[in-house]
Amino acid sequence: KELVLVLYDYQEKSPREVTVKKGDILTLLNSTNKDWWKVEVDDRQGFIPAAYLKKL
Rank of each mutant, 00 (worst) to 15 (best):
K1G: 11
K1W: 12
E2Q: 11
E2S: 12
E2G: 10
E2I: 12
E2C: 13
L3S: 08
L3I: 08
L3A: 05
L3C: 11
L3Q: 11
L3E: 06
V4N: 00
V4K: 00
V4L: 04
V6T: 04
V6C: 08
V6H: 00
V6R: 00
V6M: 02
L7A: 03
L7E: 03
Y8T: 08
Y8V: 10
Y8Q: 15
D9F: 03
D9V: 02
Y10W: 08
Y10M: 01
Y10N: 01
Y10C: 02
Y10S: 01
Y10P: 01
E12P: 10
E12H: 10
E12K: 12
K13P: 05
K13G: 08
K13W: 05
S14K: 08
S14W: 07
S14A: 09
S14H: 15
P15D: 14
P15K: 10
P15W: 08
R16T: 15
E17F: 05
V18W: 06
V18R: 02
V18H: 03
V18K: 02
V18T: 05
T19A: 05
T19D: 03
T19R: 04
T19H: 04
T19W: 03
V20Y: 05
V20P: 00
V20M: 02
V20G: 05
K21L: 07
K22V: 07
K22R: 10
K22F: 06
K22C: 09
K22L: 05
K22H: 07
G23T: 01
G23M: 03
G23Y: 05
D24N: 08
D24S: 11
D24G: 05
D24V: 07
D24C: 08
D24F: 07
I25W: 04
I25C: 05
I25S: 02
I25L: 07
I25T: 05
I25E: 03
L26P: 01
L26N: 01
L26R: 03
T27S: 10
T27N: 10
T27Q: 12
T27C: 11
T27V: 15
T27M: 12
L28A: 03
L28I: 05
L28D: 00
L28F: 02
L28R: 01
L29D: 01
L29T: 06
N30V: 08
N30S: 15
N30M: 09
N30K: 07
S31G: 11
S31W: 09
S31T: 09
S31N: 08
S31F: 06
S31E: 14
T32F: 10
T32K: 12
T32L: 10
N33M: 10
N33K: 07
N33W: 09
N33T: 07
K34A: 13
K34I: 10
D35V: 14
D35R: 11
D35W: 15
D35L: 12
W36R: 04
W36M: 07
W36N: 03
W37I: 02
W37N: 01
W37L: 02
W37T: 02
W37A: 03
W37M: 02
K38C: 13
K38D: 03
K38L: 15
K38V: 12
K38F: 14
K38P: 01
K38M: 15
K38S: 10
K38Q: 14
V39P: 00
V39W: 01
V39H: 00
V39L: 04
V39D: 00
V39Y: 01
E40G: 08
E40S: 09
E40M: 11
E40W: 08
V41E: 03
V41N: 10
V41D: 07
D42K: 15
D42A: 15
D42N: 14
D42I: 11
D42W: 09
D42E: 11
D43I: 09
D43E: 13
D43A: 12
D43H: 12
D43L: 11
D43N: 13
D43G: 15
R44V: 08
R44H: 08
R44Y: 06
Q45V: 13
Q45P: 06
Q45F: 07
Q45N: 09
F47E: 05
I48V: 15
I48M: 14
P49M: 03
P49F: 03
P49T: 01
P49I: 02
P49K: 04
P49G: 02
A50W: 02
A50H: 04
A50V: 07
A50Q: 06
A50P: 09
A51N: 15
A51I: 13
A51E: 13
Y52I: 15
Y52A: 14
Y52S: 09
Y52P: 01
L53M: 05
L53A: 10
K54P: 01
K54Y: 11
K54I: 13
K54H: 12
K55N: 07
K55V: 14
K55M: 10
K55Y: 09
L56I: 15
L56H: 05
L56D: 03
L56E: 04
L56G: 02
L56W: 08
